[in-house]
Design a protein around this nucleic acid. Structure first.
Lengths: 197, 197
DNA sequence: AGGATATTCCTAGAGGTCCTAGGAAAACGG
DNA sequence: CCGTTTTCCTAGGACCTCTAGGAATATCCT
């Protein structure tokens, strides 16, 4: 058998494909090796092990998702940007459920890899940029970013887990939620004032 | 060796403990058997297999969480109820991270078990009840419920995954988020009107 | 070019997991 | 008290992760 031309990247991509097809928690060295036409032991030259592979898939997903959002929001502002941002997020989760699930993982990822990945950093910049139009200042800005991320993430996660009964289509709720979030950002309770009684 | 007195319930509870200690995805038949002082094969009398056990843990968690929320919100209304509801949700996730993670699982749960579990049904009633004070009507009510669940779930999930950098404490953001959601519910964009341009 | 070196992929195997099949001992019911 | 049911066991197959060390292939250097 000659060489197949394995690479950490190729292994990661195949792993991501497996994740999307059968679920992130069912990604296995054996399956990835099988798809690459290689014995499982051969993968350990390129990837430290299963945990490492999972971490790499998570980083890949974070990068891809960020790129999708960046492309969708470029040149937009205000509600336009908000909607584009949110839809790109959700579409990524739909298109790549396994990869998206990988991003939820509380796994210890190799710090060296994280440093190389541009995704997370850029995602923060994108989100803050999108909110600029709403005129929020710190610490409200951070709070608003976290609320948006929570809502988007929670929605697509619940949606994927079948958490929304069939009564009303998730799409309709989603559109409504974006309207609501837009209003929320415009009326954000400034941290200057106290609570209204 | 005499009998130990195994039961589907005991197996489930020990499984839940394992989940909270080492993570839901690391729950294994072997580990549960070990803790019960029993061979792993013995568990199959009480539980169909690993998937079944995971499903049972998920249902247990759903029930417990619902009970916690019910106790916290009883006799409250309006923002008071909202805050109590949300805090009970988050506290359950903090106290039982593994069990909480179980509730995210898109696992096929035995329908017979689901029918017996009161949790999900009651959770829906509770949430709708909590929102009564805001005067929403269908389909806004459903949309609002979904947005709240998404935000709560997304927040605690991101928090657990270390998604919030240390700059600002999650607790502060959480309190702010509840203020914001309260305002959001009061200004909910009714489905009667069209979008404002 | 050709030999030394480094890298890739292999075989072999240990140890862990899930799960089934069938047996022995304990609890239960008449 | 004896037959039946239930519980837990041993045994073992199939699969998974990961390590160790070997053979084949690419690469580098003079």
């Amino acid at each position: 058998m000659g060489r197949v031309g394995l690479t950490a990247e190729r292994v990661t991509v195949v792993g991501a494909e497996v994740a999307d097809e059968v679920g992130f928690d069912r990604v296995s060295m054996s399956e990835v090796a099988r798809r690459l036409g290689v014995k499982d032991a051969s993968l350990y030259t390129h990837v430290r092990g299963l945990e490492d592979l999972r971490g790499r898939i998570a980083l890949l997903a974070a990068d891809e998702k960020t790129i999708g959002i960046a492309e969708a929001t470029v040149g937009r502002a205000g509600k336009d940007a908000l909607v584009a941002f949110a839809n790109a997020w959700r579409e990524y989760a739909h298109r790549h459920p396994g990869r998206y699930a990988a991003t939820q993982t509380p796994i210890q990822i190799d710090p060296e890899l994280v440093a190389k990945a541009a995704g997370p950093r850029r995602a923060v910049e994108l989100t803050y940029g999108m909110l600029r139009a709403y005129g929020l200042e710190e610490p409200d800005l951070t709070d608003a970013v976290r609320v948006l991320r929570s809502t988007f993430h929670g929605f697509v996660t619940l949606e994927a887990a079948g958490g929304f009964a069939h009564a009303r289509s998730p799409q309709q709720t989603w559109d409504r939620a974006l309207d609501a979030l837009h209003i929320l950002l415009e009326n954000w309770p400034s941290s200057r004032e106290g609570d209204s009684p």
